[in-house]
């Protein structure tokens, strides 16, 4: 009987001793699982969002779209971005550069890589998985005079927030901006925004209004542990300004060294 009691006591002590280890390993496993998540679907197609690169991260992306804008009936742009600072502590400044007219040199005045501009975005994170940013796209333009004159720099302010929807989630994004985010030939600012519904972190459906065009898209991050994001959609659903609905797509890839 004594032997049996001793066995129960030892077993109980071992269980108690190992409980913290179990809890720790569970926590570590969750943390490890979270850090393995690198593939995220996009929250928008064209509209700026209030978060971006921070110190130690670098992104590259290419965007293409059909259009009635040159003899190729298509054009695109290629961008790179890096961040300075920490948006959780104070703020981060994202610096990006874009080369325009990637495959639309027939009929336009600039060929591949001959025109482009700089983007700056100062963004900070807020409690509740929200963020806020002010930025300018299209500053420091280079290329032909017609490119520079017709792609004015556009200033914007934007706020983004993640909201859980049951087991799903959404990222809502609303901003105000001038020039490309406003009606053509109209001064002042206009509202833009997007809503992305996430079925998983790797698949989202997107609806957005850029201040000019209403767009819809589907975004997929095909790999869970590799940060590649592919987004395909349709632009100008309202067929505004005498234009047609056009097909658009983007591919982004990110790198983190932090």
């Amino acid at each position: 009987m004594k032997v049996k009691n001793k066995t129960v006591l030892v077993t109980g002590a071992l269980m108690l001793a190992s409980a913290p280890a179990w809890a720790q390993s569970g926590s570590e496993a969750a943390s490890a699982a979270a850090s393995e998540l690198k593939g995220f679907a996009a929250p928008a197609l064209q509209a700026p969002v209030a978060f971006g690169a921070r110190w130690g991260t670098f992104g590259a992306g290419v965007y293409g779209q059909t259009c009635d804008c040159n003899t190729d009936d298509a054009d695109g742009s290629l961008g790179v971005a890096f961040g300075l600072g920490d948006p959780d502590k104070y703020a981060a400044l994202e610096v990006s550069a874009v080369a325009a007219s990637l495959f639309g040199d027939k009929g336009a005045s600039d060929g591949f890589g001959e025109a482009g501009s700089i983007g700056l975005k100062l963004h900070t994170n807020l409690p509740g998985f929200a963020s806020f940013a002010v930025g300018v796209n299209g500053t420091g333009r280079w290329g032909s005079e017609s490119y520079k004159n017709s792609n004015k720099s556009s200033v914007y302010a934007v706020a983004s927030k993640m909201l859980p929807v049951g087991q799903f989630a959404t990222i809502l994004n609303i901003g105000i901006g001038d020039e490309i985010y406003n009606e053509p030939n109209k001064s002042g600012a206009n509202v833009f925004g997007s809503a992305a519904f996430y079925f998983t972190q790797q698949i989202s459906v997107i609806a957005e209004y850029t201040g000019r065009f209403t767009n819809a898209a589907v975004s997929v991050a095909p790999f869970r542990s590799f940060p590649l994001t592919v987004t395909l959609g349709a632009t100008n659903l309202g067929e505004r300004y005498g234009g047609d609905v056009e097909f658009a797509g983007s591919v982004g890839v990110g790198f983190a060294f932090n």
Binding site: K38, F40, A41, A42, P43, Q46, A47, P48, V49, A50, F51, G52, A53, T57, F58, G59, A60, G61, V62, Y63, Q65, C67, C69, D75, G76, S77, L78, G79, V80, A81, P87, D88, S96, V98, A100, S101, G104, A108, S109, D110, S117, G119, K121, S131, N137, G138, S144, Y147, N151, P184, R212, F213, P227, T229, T235, G243, V251, G254, F255, A256
Partner: peptide, 27 residues
């Protein structure tokens, strides 16, 4: 000028940023 006004010329900026590349915003 070609695609000016359609947003194409600036869309590469968004694609390289958090719009088309959300991972780079993670701590």
């Amino acid at each position: 000028s070609g695609s000016a006004g359609l947003g194409i010329d600036f869309a590469g900026l968004s694609t390289a940023s958090g719009t088309g590349n959300p991972y780079i915003s993670l701590p």
